[in-house]
Design a protein around this nucleic acid. Sequence first.
DNA 1: GCTGACAAGAATGTCGACAGTCCTGCGCTA
DNA 2: TAGCGCAGGACTGTCGACATTCTTGTCAGC
Lengths: 220, 220
Amino acid sequence: MDSSEIAERIWLAIAQGRLAPGARLKEEELAESFEVGRARIRSVLLQLSREGLVDIIPNKGAQVAAPGVQEARDVFYLRSTVETRVAAQLTGQLTPQAADDLRDIVRREREAIADGHLADVIRLSGLFHLKLAELTGSSVLQSILRDLISRSSLITAVYRDTGYFNCGPDEHDAIVEALMGGNEDEVLRLVSEHIEHLRADLNLTSEQQPVKNLRDIFEL
Amino acid sequence: MDSSEIAERIWLAIAQGRLAPGARLKEEELAESFEVGRARIRSVLLQLSREGLVDIIPNKGAQVAAPGVQEARDVFYLRSTVETRVAAQLTGQLTPQAADDLRDIVRREREAIADGHLADVIRLSGLFHLKLAELTGSSVLQSILRDLISRSSLITAVYRDTGYFNCGPDEHDAIVEALMGGNEDEVLRLVSEHIEHLRADLNLTSEQQPVKNLRDIFEL
DNA sequence: GCTGACAAGAATGTCGACAGTCCTGCGCTA
DNA sequence: TAGCGCAGGACTGTCGACATTCTTGTCAGC
């Protein structure tokens, strides 16, 4: 099995709540589950820790990260500043091809919502934002935003209040059209409001601290 | 040799310009130089890539990152937003112990400047900012800022225009005192100006694209 | 009953070797 | 001579095994 697929499945397990924050991720157990060596698991865990999804404690192992409410607020604050920076650089700079790519992501988002594929919704929403960062060509913005969006996915999975994600695709579409339109003030306003809506959909009033253990979670 | 020491020495080599951007970092060569197995080098390189100091290209290896001028600007823009967030959270919240720790770092900065230890100056300056993030207790802010500061170190090493770092310690001291004073507006102003000064000391007018190769760089 | 040291177990950290992949350069062909 | 294909080499990716470290449970001593 490919490394990226392993990372994907672990991410999925976290996003769907099958792996709760605090759950221990033992290398050997994961290696058995996916029928690969520990080395590959190791690199996957390092990658996930880079994205803030798992915490690695030296000589103690990895566990699913448990973001607190203050961290959740920080993440969305930072996303707002980073993504306005991204949007500012892209305003009026989008090629028709790039715009179509973005619209395609939004279309798939709508499908995922219609089909009730929650994990896909979270992932595609993240992909949209990540694609914007990619289009700037700035590896810094890409790297930082990938980190922030991964954390957002985990936070969304943990603190999600309701099941609706209706504002996502519409606002994404609006952002694409505004970028094409070239009015920077409007773009920045839409982006800020969109991030704010994402944050507002979460229940950040009380800490979530569940702990599950790991076994038979990966149906293989 | 300890993993962190290896990372430290590679960082030092980059910061001092002995390893120029674009230089290839072959695992086996590094493993021989430091007299350790490749596995340890591998994890060190992953860590450095997490901090944006090296780029890892699958099946091709690692090389020292080569930040462009636009990326340099992005880094300082992001630092400004992240660090004002940090400062806002800390205003009036610093314990006397924490303040003393910060002042101690500034003192060591002044020593390093007096002794002409350029790498120490860069590192201690970064440490000051990182310590502030640590004091917030937010792992997100810490993680993002560590990334940004590592990149800043590399950028400073590459784009440094003059040799003077005089504004650093004085402004750091001023920030500590303002944090203790509790006037948030003043704190935010000082932090913004400080980051702006850091950026202004760089020559971000033309790209730097030197390439050196790696051998006999680590005197062992 | 409580504290401390010690030993057993478990999990991570590290190593050496092999497998897989990409690039390079040579040689063949038109 | 220019272009294509192939083989060789170099390097990364992966694996299994061993070393190290941390935790946990037990037991003697007070």
